[in-house]
Design a binder for these strands. Structure first.
Lengths: 210, 210
DNA sequence: TAGATTGTTAATCGATTAACAATC
DNA sequence: TAGATTGTTAATCGATTAACAATC
C-alpha cells in the first residue's frame, strides 16, 4: 500500500493542485494538462508532470491531458483524505475552540474528537458536541478513539510539558501552533505552525520586493 | 536596508531557531554554537552556520560561539518583528475571531487592527476592541491604517471575490486560510495555509514511517 | 598554547528543467 | 495524419554538506 515517496516540497504542492482542480471541476471542466497547470502555478510543466505522475493511479492521455475528476480522487487518496484519522486539540482557548468548531477538517478525513484543557471550569463541558477533558484522561482517550494527531494551541510556556504528556500517551503526530520549540522523541512527527512567524515572513517577503 | 536575501527554506528555519534561542535565554544560557543547534534541529552544523551568518549583524567568536541575546535580536530584526505592520481579518467566523482575539501576533510586530464580514448582524460590533466593517469600507481602512496584510478566513466559495476586493483596495500580502486557489496579480504575495491539508500531510508522513 | 568554533571555498547531493521519443 | 501532451532519461541548477584555514 506504500506509494513511491514524495519529497516534502511535493507534499506542499499537492494541496494547491487540489484546490485548483476542484475549482475546475465546479466549472464543469473535465480535462486538464500540465502546461495549463504550470501556467496557473508559475512553475514548469515538467514539474507538474512529475508531481502528477507520481501520485496518479491512471495515466494521462498524450494530446489531451488528464481527467480532472480522476486527479482529484488520486490526490485526495494520496494525501489520505479518504482514510479517517482522529485528532484532539490541546488547549481550548480561542484558537483551540476554533479548531473544535471548524468543520473543514472532515473533508480531509480528519475528525477532531475532543479537547483538553487544564482549566477546571472548562472540564466536562463540550464544544460543538466535542467533550473537554483533563490531561489525566489523555492516554485513555487516545487509545479508545485511536487518535493519531494532537493539535497544540496552549501558550508557549506550557507547550513542552503538554508535548511530554502526549508523547507519554502514545501520540503519533503533533501540529504545534505555539511559538515554542518542542523536544520530543524522533518517532513523533512534529510540524511547527507559528502563525505570528508565518505572517512576519510574509511581510518580510513584501519588503524584499521593494 | 536590504540584507542579502535568504531562500524560502531558510526563512522557514529562522522562526525555529528563534523559538529555541528564546528558551535558552530564559534558562540564562548566553552562548550558543552551531554544533549545538545542529544537534537540536537534526541538521548539519554547516547549515546552521550559514543560516546564522546570513542574518547576524555581529560575528561569532571562534571557539566559543555566538551570543544568544544578540542572535535573538538579529533574527527578530531580520524577520521584521521590530517593524510594525498592520493586518486585517477577512471573515469573522470561528477562525477569524480567534485571530482578532489572539494576542501573540504583536510580539512579531503585527497589529491586527480590524475585521471584515458580510453578515450585517456583525457590522458595527467589535471583537477585543477591534471594529468589524463591511467590505465597502476596505479601501478606506487599508489606506487610513496603512494595512499590509489580509488574513483570509472566509469559506472557499467566497475566497476569490474577497481576494479581488483586497487586490482592488491595494493590499500587499494575503495569508489565505481557505482551501481555495486564489488568482491574484503577481504583485501581491500570497501564502496558502490550508489547515486541513496541513494536518493531512502530517498524518501522511506518519503513515509513511510504517 | 591547545581546543573549539567560526567564516568561506570546494565537492556533493537532490530537485528542477530541458529534451525527446512514444502515443492518443 | 498532424498537433498536443504524456512519460522518462539526461543536463542543469541550487542548496546542503564537507573541508579547512583563520582566530578567539
Amino acid at each position: 500500500m506504500t506509494e513511491k515517496k514524495a519529497t516534502l516540497r511535493q507534499l506542499e504542492r499537492y494541496p494547491n493542485y487540489l484546490a485548483y482542480l476542484k475549482k475546475l471541476d465546479q466549472r464543469g471542466i473535465d480535462k486538464v494538462s500540465s502546461p495549463m497547470l504550470a501556467g496557473v502555478f508559475n512553475c514548469s510543466e515538467e514539474q507538474v508532470r512529475k508531481d502528477l505522475h507520481l501520485i496518479a493511479k491512471r495515466s494521462g492521455k498524450p494530446g489531451s491531458g488528464r481527467s480532472v475528476k480522476e486527479l482529484i480522487e488520486d490526490i485526495e487518496d494520496f494525501l489520505g483524505y479518504n482514510s479517517e484519522k482522529r485528532a484532539i486539540v490541546m488547549g481550548v482557548g480561542n484558537l483551540g475552540t476554533a479548531f473544535l468548531r471548524y468543520n473543514g477538517f472532515i473533508k480531509a478525513g480528519i475528525d477532531v474528537v475532543a479537547g483538553f484543557d487544564s482549566d477546571p471550569k472548562k472540564l466536562g463541558k463540550s464544544v460543538e458536541g466535542k467533550p473537554i477533558y483533563a490531561s489525566s484522561e489523555l492516554k485513555k482517550v487516545i487509545e479508545a478513539k485511536d487518535v493519531t494527531i494532537a493539535i497544540v494551541t496552549v501558550p508557549a510556556g506550557s507547550a513542552q510539558s503538554v508535548a511530554d504528556e502526549l508523547s507519554e500517551a502514545g501520540i503519533k503526530a503533533i501540529c504545534n501552533f505555539s511559538p515554542a520549540h518542542l523536544n520530543v522523541d524522533d518517532s513523533i512527527e512534529v510540524l511547527n505552525v507559528d502563525l505570528a512567524a508565518t505572517l512576519a515572513v510574509l511581510s518580510h517577503k513584501v519588503k524584499d520586493r521593494e
